[in-house]
Design a protein around this nucleic acid. Structure first.
Lengths: 348, 348
DNA sequence: TATTAGCACTCTATGCGCATGAGTGCTAAG
DNA sequence: CTTAGCACTCATGCGCATAGAGTGCTAATA
């Protein structure tokens, strides 16, 4: 499986050139632009060998070589090294205008645009799925008659809300009492635990509260579901700039995929578990109408260990080295911002 | 300015045919498909006349006629009649799956997809701008240290929130006291009025409350700004189906325009004032990178008289008659839903 | 005076042939 | 193992001829 050193260098040269130019790379181009110390004929032999192994292909007999998905995979895994330190692009990255949204939704949207701008691809951010949310505060507001608005505030300052309808009318005072009760309990227990306690202890005694607790619990489930489906996509039109999407068919397919955010979410979520950067190349994206697309994703931390996913989707032929840096940088940046947000509250 | 009856009918025939087929309409097609009782030569003369007047044009000498924007305008204003009653499309419309989101944001998004699906265009819904919001409840939640989350609940059940940072730490108890105070006052006064009262009456006496009031007021302004920028776009890829967007350039321009939601907002907002359906054809859309696009918009009421805008954007060559029905139906549907939402609360 | 038939004209779209050039694969010599 | 050389393939672009659609105009007609 391990290639000869020279062949590696040729493969890298082909892929680099192809990424840069977008046109199939012939042996003569390699001779002109690189110094392998061999003739074009030898390069042809090497390229034929690389094609044999499945790393390269050519669109027709008399055309130059282009990388296959497998070739890109090898390129990512073995050929490029991403040095975060001290290269011009890294500096450029650090000089990018920072994110500053104080609302968490704004922040996510900003981050997706940030990714898009710097990578010239579509930026995608999936909001933290928060499997174990700690609510800090739960508030009930009586709207009109039997309508009650439940407001959930998480530790991180995210606010979610859900409108419920009770069987009977209820006084705001009772709601306040219950809210205070919940607030106190929330310091020690999670919502499911509190629910358990209420069900056990209050049973018949305070029907209203039991009822309210049930409604609240269900609402929190629903809210969490809705919340966990949040996908932010920024700069989708960015990636249409690249010539690979010059055909209308492809563009349409791509946009359809973007509109079906849920599919995207599932795809991205699968990679959440892994730490660090993951790269999915072309056909490696399963059941996704995105032939010719690559995804570069990373996860980010929010506060303690609540984790979301973020990344970019672009043409298979993209500037992997730079884009990987962008994704890495952004995930760290976002983690830091969320951490700060968290800390800023704790101290004092 | 008024055309002869026969010429009108020819113009309508040409536009109808063109909308149906998408190809330039020649005199022979008209003879075949319609029964004007005249020969193709006469029709040629009539069409030449209509071209003279600016209603038709032809892409090159030996091609059939296609409508100009002016032609479409005349078509909309004078030629088509939209009977809401008893036609098959109306029935089809009423059989469409209803909207059911209970959260107001969900509802808007659903509505935009509803529009898109039924019109085969991109659906756009602009959230009510609520120039005079009546807050029903304002809640303060102390997060950590000096961070306080302000939660605004409007009459309609919309929840908005904003994180602020105070100079000094504050106890939740004080926040609760202030919140109760506000709640009582909110029944009689609007937020700016309350602010005025607090500033006048409490002046030096209770510095914390004055401070809090100021912060709350500012936050409410900011929140309103953010909220009023909400534009929901559904099914943008729908409209790319039509052959007019077969060129990549156009598609890109269009998508860029969609991404810049703010521009769209301003455009749509301008037509809010008018009641009923408005149709903007092609070049009538000012400074909008949407050559070849038409917009059909209407306004909807939410509760009493808070008003939003909704509509579709599609190719100039669209099924105006049907799409106008769709937009009309949707705006009424949404108004009704919001009204119900409002009523359901009031009764008991 | 309005309509119509007829015809020349224009322009597009399509297909074919051909030349060009890029790039390969193969072979035989170094 | 490398290289020079050569035949071969294929996409691309250009020129040209042709077919067909549709018009505009003119002269005849009702």
């Amino acid at each position: 499986m391990e290639l000869e050193e020279r062949n590696k260098r040729v493969l890298q040269a082909v892929i680099d050139s192809y990424i840069a130019s977008g046109a199939p790379i012939g042996s003569s181009v390699l001779v002109k632009r690189f110094d392998f110390g061999v003739s074009s004929a030898t390069l042809r032999n090497i390229m034929a060998e690389l094609e044999e192994l499945g790393y390269l292909t050519h669109p027709h007999t008399s055309a130059g070589r282009i990388p296959t998905d497998r070739g890109y995979r090898y390129y990512i895994d073995s050929l490029i090294s991403v040095e975060n330190d001290a290269d011009e692009f890294g500096d450029q990255l650090r000089q990018a205008p920072p994110l500053h949204g104080d609302d968490i939704n704004d922040l996510m949207e900003e981050a997706s645009r940030f990714l898009a701008t710097l990578s010239h691809c579509a930026g995608v951010v999936v909001a933290p799925s928060e499997p174990e949310v700690n609510y800090r505060h739960i508030e009930f507001v009586r709207l009109r008659g039997r309508q009650v608005l439940i407001i959930f505030v998480t530790d991180g300052g995210t606010v979610q809300n859900k409108l419920i309808e009770l069987d009977e009318s209820v006084r705001q005072h009772d709601l306040n009492v219950f809210s205070s009760y919940l607030d106190e309990e929330l310091e020690h227990w999670s919502l499911p635990e509190i629910r358990q306690r209420v069900l056990e202890r209050l049973a018949e005694e305070k029907r209203l509260f039991v009822k309210l607790m049930e409604e609240t619990y269900q609402a929190s489930q629903q809210v969490r579901e809705r919340e966990s489906e949040k996908v932010y996509i920024g700069g989708a039109s960015q990636m249409l700039e690249s010539p690979e999407f010059a055909t209308v068919e492809r563009m349409k397919a791509l946009l359809k995929a973007f509109e079906d955010k849920y599919k995207l979410l599932k795809l991205l979520d699968r990679s959440v578990a892994a730490q660090g950067i993951k790269v999915f190349i072309g056909s490696e994206n399963p059941n996704f109408e995105m032939q010719g697309c690559s995804m570069i994703v990373s996860s980010y931390k929010a506060g303690t260990n609540i984790v979301g996913t973020l990344g970019v989707i672009g043409p298979t032929r993209m500037q992997y080295k730079q884009v990987i840096q962008v994704v890495d940088y952004t995930s760290k940046l976002l983690s830091k911002l969320l951490e700060e947000r968290f800390q800023r509250g704790i101290e004092r």
